[in-house]
């Protein structure tokens, strides 16, 4: 019998249902886990996604045929039973559960096991076969509790403010930026947003979320405002001439990659906060075990190491090459321009 999901050069393909999950080439029917650009590509005829994801896709991909569902709502495509379950990665991010002929497969998309209060907490789903990401699939990635990281970010901002310096937080525009806004709420300060982050902010508001008040940075924004202020900018802005207006400033990169000193040094950032929207090593292991899956396919990240480890601990596993992430094992920061956006979404 043919497996429920095939790994094709267009993406993960369910032949029984004749649809793809997060395909990277244009197809007729696409089920989308979340709105980051390496998972949600333009050019498909039909998109199926979670209700929160829809406005984000509209903002990024423009008008298309979008069908949205609630979590745990059942849809059938050509007899294959489909439902979406929270993945905890960003707003609307979902795992995709497929059921056909009494067999259950789950595609994780990107996920994190800690509840960030915005993305809806990760829900373990029992299945026979689990397809998991492995962005941070090495035991060196062990996150601190997020409250501790938030505390450190806030302390850093106050320290900069004392010296009349602007705090520029570098964070990906969809996901990390909104998470940071929530973390900065206790400071009761206006947070200034780069245009790209402002756009995503509007899309998130239109999905029905409430976020703290912010101000958009425009060429007209007065210079006097930056003294000791808080700014959130996307990775692409880091080191660009756009940053000059904030001098004197300190930059703080918020990314799981900051766990390793060398990455922070390469970014030449003043501070690195290992705040990630992906599961750490323990998170991945916990998630895999909670599915009860007999077979686990490992995609983008440290797939060979994670898959080997699973095999050695008695869980049958294989690695799968996809076009998610940029490429295996690549941290952001030194990206060739063309894949900059994808890169940002993966690490940051």
């Amino acid at each position: 019998m043919e497996p429920l999901i095939l790994f094709t050069n267009k993406g993960l393909y369910c032949s029984a249902g004749n649809f793809y999950i997060d395909p990277w080439k244009p197809v007729a029917n696409a089920v989308i886990t979340h709105a980051h650009s390496d998972h949600a590509k333009p050019g498909h005829e039909k998109y199926l996604c979670h209700r929160f994801t829809k406005p984000l896709l509209q903002a990024r991909l423009g008008p298309n045929y979008y069908q949205s569902v609630e979590w745990n709502e059942t849809v059938f495509i050509n007899g294959v039973k489909i439902s979406l379950h929270p993945a905890g990665h960003i707003i609307g991010s979902s795992q995709i559960r497929l059921e056909y002929n009494d067999e259950v497969w789950v595609v994780s998309g990107d996920y994190k096991t800690a509840d960030d209060g915005l993305s809806t907490a990760f829900e373990p789903v029992r299945c026979h076969v689990f397809i998991t990401e492995s962005t941070f699939g090495l035991p060196i990635y062990k996150w601190q509790p997020q409250e501790e990281i938030y505390n450190n970010v806030r302390k850093w901002i106050l320290e900069n403010k004392q010296q009349n310096k602007t705090s520029v937080l570098i964070a990906y525009s969809l996901g990390k930026a909104q998470r940071l806004l929530k973390a900065l709420e206790p400071l009761n300060e206006t947070v200034y947003l780069h245009g790209a982050i402002w756009n995503m902010h509007q899309a998130v508001l239109s999905a029905g979320f409430t976020l703290p008040a912010v101000e958009r940075i425009t060429p007209e924004t007065g210079k006097e405002k930056w003294k000791g202020a808080i700014v959130i900018a996307p990775p692409g802005a880091d080191g660009s001439p756009w940053m000059k207006r904030f001098d004197p400033c300190e930059t703080g990169v918020c990314s799981g990659w900051m766990q390793v000193r060398g990455n922070a040094r390469r970014r030449n950032t003043d501070a690195g906060f290992a705040l990630s929207d992906h599961a750490d090593w323990e998170g991945l292991l916990t998630a895999v075990k909670a599915t009860g899956a007999l077979k686990v396919f490992v995609t983008h990240g440290f797939q060979s190491a994670f898959s080997r480890y699973l095999n050695e601990t008695g869980i049958e596993s294989a690695e799968v090459k996809t076009e998610y992430g940029n490429d295996e094992e690549e941290p952001p920061g030194l990206a060739p321009e063309q894949s900059e956006q994808i890169k940002e979404e993966h690490g940051l």
């Binding site: 850093w156 900051m258 922070a264 003043d270 501070a271 690195g272 906060f273 290992a274």
Partner: peptide
């Protein structure tokens, strides 16, 4: 966390 700055006041 390794790369976090230590405020000078501390």
């Amino acid at each position: 966390m390794i790369n976090e700055p230590i405020p000078k006041s501390e």
